[in-house]
Structure formats: C-alpha cells, structure tokens
C-alpha cells in the first residue's frame, strides 16, 4: 500500500518536472495547429482577404489604379435605383432557377437511363461528359454560330425545310436572348449532374430493389420510395454546386452576348465586370459582386441543411 502511494507520489513529482515546453511539444492539438496553419494561411490570404477587400471596396469610390475614399452605402443606394442592376439581379435569379430545374430533371433522367443496361454503356457515358469537358468559351462560340442572326443552323434548317422564310432572331430580342443563354447553360450543366447522380445511383443496394420487386412495387413506387430517398444527400450536394456555378456564371454570357441586347442578359457577374473593370469603377463593381454574397450564402445554407438530413436517411437521428 505504502509502496503504491510512494510510486504514485514519485510519478506525480516527475510529472510536475515536465516543463510547459515539453507539454506543448507532445500536445497533439498544438501540433495539429501547426499542421493546419499553412492551409489556414492560404485560406486567409487567397479567400478571406480578397473577399474582405472586395466588401471594403464596395463602400468606397475606388477606381482602377487608385484607392478611393469611404463613401458608406452610396454605391448600394445608387444600385438599388439602377434599372440595369435590378434587371441583372432578377435575371440572375431566373437564370439560376430555370436552368437548375431543367438541369436537375434532365440530369436525373439521364442518370437513371445510364444506370440501366444499355449497349455501349461506357462509350455513351463518356460521350455524355463532352459538353462539360469542352472549355466554356469554346462551347459558347459553337452556340454563337447556332444562335447567329444570319447564319444560324436552326434557322437554315427550318428555312430549307420550308417551315419559315426569315431567320429567327435568337440573340437580338431580349426574351429570345434570355431563353437562348439559359438553353446553352443547361446544355453545358447537364453532364455534371447526370454523372454525379449516376455515381449516387450505383451506391443504392440492388437488394432493396429485389425486395421491392418481391413486394410487387411498381417502377414509380421503387423510384419514389427507394431511389429518391437514398439519392437525396447527393442531390443536395450536386444541386448546391450547380446553383453556385450557375449563379456566378460569367464566361458563357460574356462570350455570347456581353450582356446585350440592351442589358437583357446581364448577370450580376458580367455587370460587375463591365462596370468595375471595363468602366474602371471598382467600387461600384465590387458592390455588385458583394450583392451576390447573400444569395450564395442562402444556397450554401440550403445545402448544409440538406447534408444534415443525411443521418436519418441512413436510419440515424438528427441531433
């Protein structure tokens, strides 16, 4: 007993001799901190700093090549009253919502189709990815020709078929132009969603379908009660990404219309570039870019709640 006490005492005294530095050296969390530091540094330097700078700039009248002075909310007040900005915001939301809904519907349909046994499945899957692989500017140039007011292949075909006499003015009428750029965005975005959902579909255990078949479930019931619930987490992730990409789209619009005709196809990103970089008014450009942040945050929050639901999807509970 006394031996044990003495032993304990000895151990305790040796513990007291350990210096703060020794303790720090063996502390896993302290070590972890150092391992994290480079990553945190990168994030701060390349993400947080530019974001902070952008937000700060939106409160100034900065121009290219010269830092401005603080003007408070003046940029935002002006933008709220600016029809081009309001139109760009509304169109950005429409663009995102319409394109995302179509991309999801077509992507899911393609994924389910590709998940079945079809001939040359590997090749078909590879082909599906092409629109996603082609650089945006290149595909935009292809669409440029498809939508050309004089040389459009669609107008040409319809004319040759004798279905109409003139050309369709795809990009010259605001409503047509808006529909055309949304179509191009859908074409480009579908493969990403289809392939990701396909990966999700392949994780659904076939035994569930077998059990459902034995129970006499119809294909629709199988989709509604097996496929869809098990796919929800991946849908949440892929749709968040899709919404973020669509909302911040720039290249497609810039290559196709530069925001025209009469600013009808300006997205917030393209308007921000036109005002901030080409027009040289960095402060106003930054304010337009900053105005995108709340929308993007909302999209991220939706995804976050989507991911939270994952636990009960797999039989756990939300806590």
């Amino acid at each position: 007993m006394s031996d044990i006490t003495a032993g304990t005492l000895r151990v305790q005294s040796s513990v007291r001799e350990v210096s703060f530095w020794d303790r720090l050296r063996t502390n896993r969390e302290w070590l972890g901190f150092w391992f994290m530091l480079p990553a945190a540094g990168f994030l701060l330097l390349f993400l947080a700093y530019p974001l902070g700078l952008g937000i700060w700039m939106s409160f100034t009248d900065a121009r290219i090549g010269r830092s401005g002075s603080f003007i408070g909310l003046e940029n935002y007040e002006w933008l709220l009253d600016d029809r081009s900005f309001v139109n760009a915001t509304l169109f950005t939301i429409t663009y995102t919502v319409v394109a995302s809904v179509f991309k999801f519907a077509i992507g899911l349909y393609l994924a389910i189709l590709l998940n079945r046994y079809i001939p040359f499945r590997a090749i078909v899957r590879a082909v599906i990815l092409i629109p996603f692989i082609v650089p945006t500017v290149l595909s935009a140039i292809a669409f440029w020709w498809i939508f050309d007011p004089q040389f459009s292949i669609i107008s040409w075909s319809l004319r040759k078929l004798g279905l109409m006499t003139g050309n369709i003015d795809f990009l010259g009428v605001p409503l047509h132009a808006q529909a055309s750029v949304i179509f191009a965005n859908i074409w480009r975005g579908v493969p990403f969603i289809a392939i990701t959902l396909l990966a999700g579909l392949q994780t659904v255990p076939p035994s569930l379908y077998e059990a459902a078949t034995l129970d006499g479930a119809s294909p629709w019931q199988m989709f509604r009660h097996i496929t869809y619930p098990l796919l929800t987490p991946i849908i949440a992730v892929v749709m968040t990404f899709s919404v973020l990409f669509t909302f911040t789209d720039f290249q497609l619009i810039w290559a196709l219309t530069r925001g025209g005709p009469v600013n009808a196809t300006h997205l917030m990103a393209t308007l921000s570039y036109q005002r901030g970089i080409l027009g040289g008014r960095l402060g106003e450009g930054a304010a337009i870019a900053t105005a995108m942040v709340p929308f993007l945050l909302a999209a991220i929050m939706i995804s976050w709640f989507g991911l939270q639901r994952r636990k009960w999807q797999h039989g756990g509970r939300d806590d």
């Binding site: 939508f147 050309d148 007011p149 050309n167 795809f170 010259g172 132009a177 005709p261």
Partner: peptide
C-alpha cells in the same frame, strides 16, 4: 436594317 443587329458584336458585320 437586317433583323438581328441588336445582338451584333464587333465581328458580326464583317461576317455578314
């Protein structure tokens, strides 16, 4: 004018 000029960028009139 020919229809479609509202969508013309700098290169369109050269092409047409």
């Amino acid at each position: 004018m020919i229809p479609g000029v509202a969508s013309w960028n700098d290169a369109f009139n050269n092409k047409a």
